[in-house]
Design a protein around this nucleic acid. Structure first.
Lengths: 137, 137
DNA sequence: ATTCGTGCAAACCGTTTGCAGTGCT
DNA sequence: AGCACTGCAAACGGTTTGCACGAAT
């Protein structure tokens, strides 16, 4: 455990939502200004291998990363991405009913679902959306 | 309509499933050997603007492209991606029930669902999977 | 002293763009 | 001639890797 790795983990913990490597870099540099992007990637990879972090893959987007839940928690999650501020939020639950759309002969092992729309900040039409987008540029 | 564009469209039509730009290039070069990747991308973009083709965005993967259905068909589709041969297959239907997992205050505008597993060729344990994977390298 | 992690720069992959050349009208 | 489209190569953004330096044992 190095200072750099601690800074990456702190950045993820404080955000409470999935972050891109660049967002992690920006946040973690407040603790370790000399931190480089390559180190962020290397630590993310190590943390992924350790199952301390997991990757959130979004269609047509670069991966985001978040801290893994405590052991024993759900392994499977879906996400909501705001089309205005680009932030990603975890969801609870899973729609299921996948057999209905699976053609015969196909074996489903897992699935990815992403909801797209407006988060509460950006749906309201208030000025909050600009603040949120700016905060995460 | 140029020879190059015709070759791109033919490649998509003959495949009958979403193709990556590199797959399109390889297939279309059988008609137009001098074809370049940039031209594939430019034609894809033009065809997208024309709604003759649409992009299939997969989590953690480069986009694939397929011919748009005849006008009047469903605008919204989901896909199955084979974890063995990497090919992508269109599905019919949609699980719905998204309200159940949408937290209050969020406005869902659309969603993306990808099923991952084994396609019939690769689930069977026969030698077919190797043939399919090789065909699409 | 050895080892492991870091920081920087270069490499890499998929995609986009600038530019000169080609083929149509 | 003019114009749109092509092919190539360079640029680009995100990610990975090579390599020499620095920190910790």
């Amino acid at each position: 455990m190095t200072r750099q790795r601690g800074a990456v983990i702190d950045a993820l913990r404080e955000a409470g939502r999935p972050l891109s490597p660049a967002e992690i870099l920006a946040a973690a540099q407040r603790q370790v200004p000399s931190l480089g992007l390559a180190t962020v990637y290397r630590n993310l990879r190590a943390l992924l291998d350790d199952a301390q972090v997991h990757a959130v893959e979004l269609p047509g987007q670069a991966d985001r990363y978040e801290l893994a839940e405590e052991p024993g928690a759900v392994t499977h999650r879906h996400y909501f991405q705001c089309l205005t501020c680009d932030r990603v939020f975890p969801l609870d639950g899973c729609p299921g009913h996948l057999e209905e759309i699976t053609p015969p002969g196909f074996v489903v092992e897992h699935h990815e679902l992403t909801l797209l729309g407006r988060c509460p900040d950006c749906a309201g039409g208030s000025g909050k959306l600009r603040k949120a987008a700016a905060r995460d540029h």
